[in-house]
Design a protein around this nucleic acid. Structure first.
Lengths: 174, 174
DNA sequence: CTACGCATGTAACACGTTACATGATTCA
DNA sequence: TGAATCATGTAACGTGTTACATGCGTAG
């Protein structure tokens, strides 16, 4: 699972600009993927060079020009091949949990502050995911995409439950 | 949060070999971090070169020699500085969820197979985490380390609930 | 007058991954 | 006889991150 697989997959559904791809990353894939412009544009460039996608430049008034990318038959084949590969393991990097792991080098206040920050982060992400769900439905969501949504929501909620309980436990013991 | 922060943190608690560090990655940090030997040994080397840790070679009979690394005052300062930095966002990469997102290019059987594989993966990881918990307690676990354990368990369980329900839903609808 | 939305890009860098390489001992 | 445990490493490679750079229109 690399950046190009995600980009290609999104273009496999419909032609899009790099900007639109970034938007989807943030609203729909946010729970399980992140990619910056610094990855998107170079990837688009390489994919075009390799004949996987084609670029159409659209001139706009009052707005910057757009590069709309469309997938080619070669790109479709490449994407289909990716879809047949073996599942790679899920991987999580949590700076927060690392701080907790090394928590004995923290004061109680510092630990509490980290927990609060993490609660904020998770609540914000959960809100973002939920906020875009209705629009997602309106624009057409598949059954399996609903699974990705539920998976994200369930995990955010599970994390928040543990975080809030931990906050109370630590604060009490002070 | 980089590899060197994790390595330094583990050496901050006690002297260890690269092999032992890898073992901790797999048994205790597995939910939220992963690092291979290809990262560990070069990191250890660089940390030593930078004066953050020192190496002691221990000759063993019937087993390969060990390099036991200990943290220096400079290393302790470096680690303490890391612990004061701002929390970085949690990041998840899930190949499984990407397949679900692009699930309309899959047959029902393929989708089901991916869900089964993911259930296996998550169950294995959950079992590993739980299996090492008792030993962790015996060797001394902190309150905040218990939070990392609970966080991992809660998330694995939340994922599994969604996965199993999804499996039934999809299988039914066939 | 500031911030946000729209829109694209590059260059340098660092980090980690992958594959390869070795080898004795012990347990099943 | 094969697999697992103990134990360490390198070299090449690729991917993605970070910081920088630009610029108009609109809404508050």
């Amino acid at each position: 699972m690399q950046g190009k697989d995600v980009v290609l997959g999104l273009l496999n559904d419909q032609p899009r600009t790099g900007y639109e791809i970034k938007d989807i990353f943030e609203t729909r894939l946010a729970y399980f993927f992140d990619g910056t412009y610094g990855m998107i544009y170079p990837t688009l460039r390489k994919l075009e060079k390799d004949g996987m996608i084609t670029k159409e430049v659209v001139f706009q008034e009052g707005k910057p020009n757009k590069n709309i990318y469309s997938i080619t038959p070669a790109g479709k084949a490449e994407f289909a091949a990716y879809m047949q590969t073996e599942l790679a393991d899920e991987s999580i990097k949590s700076d927060f949990l690392l701080r907790m792991y090394f928590g004995k080098h923290l004061t109680t206040d510092q630990a509490l502050a980290f927990i609060e920050t993490q609660i904020d982060h998770q609540e914000t992400k959960l809100r973002t995911l939920k906020a875009h769900y209705n629009e997602w439905i309106r624009n057409g969501i598949t059954d399996l995409q609903i699974v990705t949504y539920k998976y994200g929501v369930a995990n955010y909620e599970a994390s928040l439950t543990v975080l809030k309980q931990a906050y109370l436990d630590i604060a009490d013991r002070q």
